[in-house]
């Protein structure tokens, strides 16, 4: 669908700023057809649903909208979602940066295997991911009885939600950084070491500034997924109202209770989050492209 926007904007700027080069452009009605198709899909699949969320959210008025958000169960869902993001994003940040650093700056046996392993959460369905944790940590699971004996609750409690979310968002930062750092090579790091820099100095003053935008990009994507994850969290959560309901789960419950206005009100929060993510993502991409273009001249 993004293709639709790009086509539309692209066509506009051609008409506005440049003379059309007949040798490389299609005839007008072909262009109109392609742009039209793009816009049609864009409207049906993106704009309409997004609009519907907000329209439905405000159907019963602003008061009802706000009431749905400050209601205790909703507040607790917001809190849980924020906690999940606050825990899983920093953990994945640390993991992702160290994994990418290890993989790209050093040679060791099993490197390819490690990269494949990092990708695992992308290829496993989130529901399966949730089930894995139920099987391992649940009451009937491998370590279930030990946890029961020691009075530790993981499944159907916050730790389970954290585990599932970390699993699902595991690859985001590492996946973003590995190609970037691979392309940058190790010459600058080697130069720094020869000049006498210690390991952390090399990282802090040479590596980190070079990958900063990639890190931010990875964090933004990771955060969006951590807050929006439904499948894996749904399996391990147990849907205990006010305790283990995250925002997406809360939306589902409200919807199943035919409380549409409230469901859409909460959903609109997630939609705003998604739009914000997109905005930051676009800015970061633009910024990174700028930095890259500057470095390309080297």
């Amino acid at each position: 669908m993004a293709g639709g926007i790009a086509t539309a904007l692209g066509a506009k700027s051609i008409r506005g700023n440049q003379r059309i080069n007949n040798a490389t452009t299609e005839s007008p009605w072909v262009r109109r057809l392609i742009i039209g198709t793009g816009l049609f899909y864009f409207t049906i699949f993106l704009l309409l649903p997004l609009g519907a969320v907000f329209v439905e959210a405000f159907r019963k008025g602003v008061d009802a909208y706000l009431a749905a958000l400050v209601e205790p169960d909703a507040m607790s869902a917001i809190k849980l979602t924020l906690i999940t993001a606050l825990v899983s994003v920093p953990l994945n940040l640390v993991f992702g940066v160290s994994a990418a650093w290890a993989i790209t700056k050093f040679n060791f046996p099993g490197k390819r295997f490690l990269i494949t392993l990092i990708d695992l959460p992308f290829s496993v369905s989130p529901v399966i991911a949730g089930l894995i944790f139920v099987l391992v940590f649940g009451a009937q699971g491998w370590f279930g009885s030990w946890f029961l004996d020691n009075d530790i609750k993981i499944i159907f409690a916050v730790p389970g939600i954290l585990l599932a979310t970390i699993f699902v968002t595991f690859p985001f930062v590492a996946r973003e950084l590995i190609p970037l750092m691979e392309a940058q090579g190790k010459e600058e790091e080697e130069a720094a070491i020869v000049l006498g820099a210690r390991g952390w100095q090399v990282f802090r003053y040479v590596t980190l500034p070079n990958i900063l935008w990639g890190v931010i990009y990875g964090v933004v994507l990771c955060n969006a997924r951590a807050m929006g994850e439904f499948g894996a969290v749904s399996v391990v959560s147990g849907h205990i109202r006010g305790e283990t309901n995250s925002l997406p789960l809360h939306v589902e419950i409200l919807y199943n209770e035919y409380n549409f206005a409230a469901a859409f009100a909460v959903a609109s929060l997630l939609a705003v989050l998604a739009l914000l993510t997109l905005l930051i993502k676009t800015y970061v991409e633009w910024k990174a492209a700028q930095v890259n273009a500057q470095h390309k001249e080297d």
Binding site: E187, E190, A191, A192, V194, A197, R198, Y205, N210, D298
Partner: peptide
């Protein structure tokens, strides 16, 4: 490497892109 007190010049310069010329030279 740190203790060998060698200077190394790379084929593709390996200057620190985000630092000024002054900071590059001052790095060591």
């Amino acid at each position: 490497v740190r203790e060998r007190q060698v200077g190394f010049v790379f084929q593709h310069y390996a200057l620190f892109k985000h630092m000024t010329v002054f900071e590059n030279v001052a790095f060591g």
